[in-house]
Structures are given as C-alpha cells and as structure tokens.
Amino acid sequence: MNGVAFTLAPVAAAPSAEAVVRAVGLTKLYGETPVVKGIDFSVYRGECVGLLGPNGAGKTTTLRLLLGTAHPSGGTLEVLGLPVPARAAEMRRRLGVVPQFDNLDPDFTVAENLQTYGSYFGLGRAALAERVPVLLEFAALTERAGAKISALSGGMKRRLTLARALINDPELLILDEPTTGLDPQARQLLWRRLRELLAAGKTLLLTTHYMEEAERLCDRIMVMDHGVILATGSPAELIRAHIEPQVVELFGPRAAEWLAAEGAGRAERTEEVGESVLCYLHDERPLLDALAAVEGLRFTHRRANLEDVFLKLTGRDLRTAS
C-alpha cells in the first residue's frame, strides 16, 4: 500500500504489453458440468476488456476464478503477477471488485461504507481520512456522505459500489455488469467515471449485456458462450472479421413470409430474430430497391454492429439472451 490517495492524474494511458491477467487452459467444472472450458486469454495493463455473452455463458464464473473465490478445476491463472488461487489474498490487495448485485452495508451510511470496506484492506484512520472524501467526490456523493443506503437511487448505489472498489487504489478493476438496471442518465455518468479511471491508468475487465457499453468503453472484447471464448478483438475488428458490413432489417408478420419466398437469393446471410428478419450483405442497394416494391413490408438499413457479431457467434439475440 503506497499510502497515496487515489487521484485522477493520468499515469499510463496507453495499453502496454504487460499482462495483468494471464489465463491458460482455465477450466471450471461444477460437479460433472463444465462451466468454463479451458479458455486462454490475457488482459494488458491500461486496457478495458469487455467479456460479452448471454447468461450462463460462464462470464461470472470466469470473474470468480480471477478473484480467487472459485477455484479452477484445471489450467493456470496469474493475476497481477501472482498465481491464483494460491496467492489470491495477496493479489486482492491490489484489486477492486464491483459485483453484479450491490452488497453495500445497509446498516452504515455512505461514508461509513467506504471506511468499513477500507478497514478490510487494513487501511488506518489517516489513510481513510485522505481517501474517503476524494472517492465521495468521484462518486458525486459528497452531499450524501451521511445518507443511509436505502435512501440512495440505483445509480448512486452503483457509484458508491464503484467508489468502494477503489478504496485500496487498485491496479485492476473487475466489474460484473456494472450498469445493469440503471437508467440511461445514470449509465452515462458511470461510463464517464470508468473512462476517467482508464485515463488514470487503471485496467478494467467488465462483463456486460449492453453492446453500446462494450463499443464505447472497451478496447477489446471477448465474446463468450457455453464456457468458451468464441472471438476476441476490438469492436471494429470483430465486425470486420465476422460479418458482412451492411444490414437490412425487416419487421412485422410479412417479414417471415418474404424470407421464405425470396430471402435466400437476395441476401448473403439471413437471421430471424423474433418478428424481424436480418439480411446481411456487402451491397445493400439491390435489396433495398427490391423491398421498396413489396407492399406492406417495413424495413430499415443500417451498418453492422457488435450486436450482429454476437448474434452470429452465439446464435442468440443479446437483448433476449439475458
């Protein structure tokens, strides 16, 4: 512990080649059921990595393995240069965690939550007196320092949980669905804070269900399903590598009818999601012209995004996967 309060001054903004997480053949079985199936991945200092996948994909288990609160059935894992779980307690001194469900202490005020959590890291009165006000400011909760947890909004609770995860000035932050359940404004504010942390040189590993979140925040994305990492890359790389660049989306009951009648010949690839049909192609013009002639068919054209990559790789619509 260096005793210096957490600051937002940039340290090393650009991702470096130093791996802060290195997993090789990481495997986790629950009973006979494999949940994580021998995955290999690294997270480099200063980058933000998004772990993307439907519920049950193995994301949370992977995070638990990193944390040392689940023990791997196979493979090797190193976090912040230390073997996990063998030296997990030592590693956790330099780690911050934002869990999926808020577990703030309801018996304490906002400030007391930070102080108590700091005491678990062995932080004394002096260190806390220095850090807590900075973190309250960071979480925009200075005015609420004496408030009860039950009086906070969902967004405030999440920001407090984030501030709590920073009490030990960690090098690596693990966030499990940090913005799930937040309204758009609260989400925006949290994103801004996470970007500030990245600018300050922190390394972030987060899971999310939100494409927008992944595209905005993450330098790299790992798409995970059924305990396997299906693809890794920047959002742009994933789109380029895995799908056609243009999408024409057809809506309504007539969409399926059209797909059955002539869809196959018109698009390079199609996907049915609920009542919509997605047509993937390189040149959208001929299809748009043809569709314009069909009566009663609603459609729209857009560029391919991460959601489409996800749909192709996992066969699932992310919006309904959760």
């Binding site: 944390l67 609160t69 307690a89 956790r92 001194r93 780690l95 869990p99 577990n103 202490d105 890291f121």
Partner: peptide, 14 residues
C-alpha cells in the same frame, strides 16, 4: 441477504 461476507471475500480477508 446482505451478501456482506461476499463483499469481504473480495478483499484480502479469508
């Protein structure tokens, strides 16, 4: 209910 212990286990404590 409170998951207080889970929070504690994310720190160096065992």
């Amino acid at each position: 209910m409170q998951q207080t212990w889970e929070g504690i286990l994310a720190t160096p404590l065992s």
